[in-house]
């Protein structure tokens, strides 16, 4: 008799299949989602993502939410094929809940990272076939060590800790350099920034990514579309409402572009 704590295993026993490559999809333009970033600020971790999903040079959707709250203390931001990424998020969300409820304790932060690694590893055939590559960022508050952490992955499931920040998606090369510059030679390192300043930074970074990457959607003021920005602190995950992003964008971002 096992520990009966693994929801993913349970799904497999019930016949659920994940990560199977589909050869027939070759030549089709697949929907992908683009720039995501996470960095440590004064109170925890900020995770942000633009809202655009593209298929080739087509804009599929401009209201995608790529920063997904998995539980009260963790967030997965997704770049790559949304169909696979949403399925992963759904499995993770249920896995963490199932673990907590069966074992009567939270799954450790390490355990959560491992769960995502396992999903990515099972997804390798689909990723290599070009039908389901996902390159996520996982960020959360480690309740045991009382510190917020950022991890990023490659499509094969290797996990890397982002000490100060992590980026992923097609717009990420643009902002990776900026993050390095700001963090190293800026007036203060990212980790010292208060919430509002960190938010302004995230808005500027995503606007820069949109400037150089057609697959990244910037801010669309006419439609009232702003990036998704979430904060992870000891007290949990919180989303910055659009009503607060709007004035920050207008006063601190738009006048610079």
């Amino acid at each position: 008799m096992g520990m009966q704590s693994d929801f993913y295993q349970l799904l497999k026993e019930q016949g659920h299949v994940f990560g199977v490559p589909s050869q027939t999809a070759r030549g089709q333009e697949l929907t992908t989602a683009t720039t995501i970033l996470a960095f440590k600020y004064r109170d925890g971790v900020l995770v942000a993502g633009d809202r655009r999903a593209t298929a080739g040079n087509m804009v599929m959707y401009d209201r995608t939410d790529k920063v997904l709250e998995i539980d009260r203390h963790s967030v997965m931001a997704i770049a790559g094929v949304p169909a696979t990424a949403y399925e992963m998020a759904r499995i993770l969300e249920h896995s963490f809940k199932y673990f907590r409820r069966t074992q009567l304790q939270e799954l450790s932060f390490e355990g959560k990272l491992r769960a995502l690694s396992k999903l990515l590893k099972d997804n390798v055939p689909a990723a290599l076939a070009g039908t389901g590559a996902v390159v996520p960022i996982f960020a959360g508050y480690d309740l045991e060590q009382e510190v917020a952490k950022i991890y990023f992955y490659d499509i094969l499931g290797a996990e890397f800790e982002g000490v100060d920040y992590a980026v992923s998606g097609s717009g990420s090369p643009t902002i990776r350099g900026i993050l390095h510059y700001v963090n190293t030679w800026g007036e203060q390192p990212l980790s010292a920034m208060p919430e509002e300043q960190a938010t302004v930074q995230a808005l500027r970074l995503l606007t820069s990514a949109a400037e150089f990457d057609s697959a990244t959607g910037g801010v669309n003021r006419e439609a009232g579309l702003y990036p998704v920005i979430k904060f992870i602190t000891a007290s949990g995950v919180r989303t910055m409402p659009d009503a607060q992003l709007k004035p920050l964008f207008e006063t601190k971002v738009s006048r610079h572009v």
């Binding site: 929801f7 349970l10 799904l11 759904r90 249920h94 809940k97 199932y98 409820r101 069966t102």
Partner: peptide
């Protein structure tokens, strides 16, 4: 119960 609920919820 947990198994039924979570598989169904998923």
């Amino acid at each position: 119960l947990l198994e039924m609920a979570h598989v169904e919820g998923f």
